[in-house]
C-alpha cells in the first residue's frame, strides 16, 4: 500500500511536504483500525489537529476524517450538544502514583506525561514512531508514548524513566548505562533504558545479537550502540543475580 501526504488541496504527492493535513491513502477499502494504525505511525505535529483523507484515486471520492472521529471510533471521544468535543477524564497510575486528569481526546500520551504531569524525562525525538525516545512501560510493556492517545492509557499503569530508581537506588539498567558509558548526549537514553527493561523482562538470558535486534526500534546517534549493548548485557547479568551492587542514586565520582 502506498501513501502520500497532501497539504490541503495542493497537488503535493511527496511524503514530505510540510504540515500535512491529510494522509492520501491509495486503497479503497480500509478498516478504521487500519486507518488509525496509519495515522498514528505517520502523524505529524500538525496532524494532532488535522484530518486524514481516504481514497486517493480521485480526491472527489475521498473521505475526510478528523482525528477526533477516528478517536471516537476507538471509543475515546464524547461530544457535548452538537459537535463540540469534550475533554475526557482519565485515571492513570504513573510511577506508582494515581493521576486523575482531564485531557483533550487528541492528546498523545507523551504530551500528557511531559506537559500535564511535568515528567520531562520522556523525550520526543520524531513523529513517525521510529526513534523510540518516548518509550515508556504501559502495564509493564514498552510502548512508544507518541503512538498512543492519553485516553488509551485510562486505567493503565505507566512507568517512565523518573520511576526507574526505587528507594534511592538506581535500577540496574541505570547503573549499567552509567558504568558502561552507554550514553553521550542522553536524549535517547530514557527511552532506550525503558525499552531495555522491557527486553530484559522478556529475555533475561539474551545474547548480544538479540539485544541489538530487540533494540532496533530505538535510535541513538551518539554511541554507535556498542556501549548500549554492553550496558544492557551488564544489567542482564546483574539482574540475574550477578555480584555487582547497585550504586546509590545521586552519588557521583568514579
Amino acid at each position: 500500500m502506498g501513501f502520500s501526504r497532501g497539504a490541503d488541496d495542493q497537488p503535493i504527492r511527496s511524503s514530505t511536504s510540510t504540515h500535512a493535513r491529510y494522509l492520501l491513502i491509495d486503497a479503497d477499502h480500509l478498516s478504521l483500525e487500519m486507518v488509525w494504525h496509519i495515522v498514528v505511525r505517520h502523524r505529524s505535529a500538525a496532524c494532532r489537529t488535522a484530518a486524514i483523507r481516504i481514497g486517493a484515486k480521485s480526491p472527489e471520492a475521498s473521505v475526510t476524517l478528523s482525528l477526533e472521529v477516528v478517536a471516537e471510533h476507538m471509543g475515546a471521544v464524547t461530544r457535548k450538544g452538537g459537535s463540540e468535543v469534550v475533554d475526557q477524564n482519565i485515571r492513570v497510575t504513573v510511577n506508582g502514583v494515581e493521576q486523575q486528569s482531564s485531557v483533550e481526546p487528541r492528546t498523545l500520551l507523551v504530551h500528557y506525561l511531559r506537559d500535564t504531569l511535568n515528567l520531562t524525562g520522556t523525550h520526543v525525538g520524531c513523529d513517525t514512531s521510529q526513534c523510540g525516545a518516548c518509550t515508556v512501560l504501559l502495564n509493564g510493556q514498552p510502548v512508544k508514548s507518541c503512538t498512543m492517545l492519553a485516553v488509551q492509557a485510562d486505567g493503565a499503569q505507566v512507568q517512565t524513566v523518573e520511576g526507574l530508581a526505587q528507594n534511592g537506588q538506581y535500577h540496574p539498567i541505570q547503573t549499567a548505562f552509567w558504568e558502561k558509558h552507554g550514553l553521550q548526549c542522553g536524549f535517547c537514553t530514557p527511552g532506550m533504558m525503558m525499552a531495555a527493561v522491557g527486553v530484559l523482562q522478556r529475555s533475561p538470558n539474551i545474547s548480544d545479537d538479540e539485544i541489538r535486534q530487540q533494540l532496533e526500534g530505538n535510535l541513538c546517534r551518539c554511541t554507535g550502540y556498542q556501549n548500549i549493548v554492553a550496558a544492557v548485557r551488564a544489567a542482564a547479568d546483574q539482574m540475574r543475580g550477578g555480584a555487582a551492587q547497585p550504586a546509590a542514586a545521586g552519588t557521583s565520582g568514579q
Binding site: T160, V161, A165, W178, E179, M193, A249
Partner: peptide, 24 residues
C-alpha cells in the same frame, strides 16, 4: 588518563536533564 564515570550521567539517566523543550 583514567577512566572516570561521567558526572553528566546521573541527571541524564534519571530523566532530569534540561533540554530546551524541558523549560517551561
Amino acid at each position: 588518563g583514567a577512566t572516570v564515570k561521567r558526572r553528566e550521567d546521573p541527571r541524564l539517566i534519571t530523566g532530569k536533564g534540561t533540554y530546551t523543550d524541558d523549560f517551561k
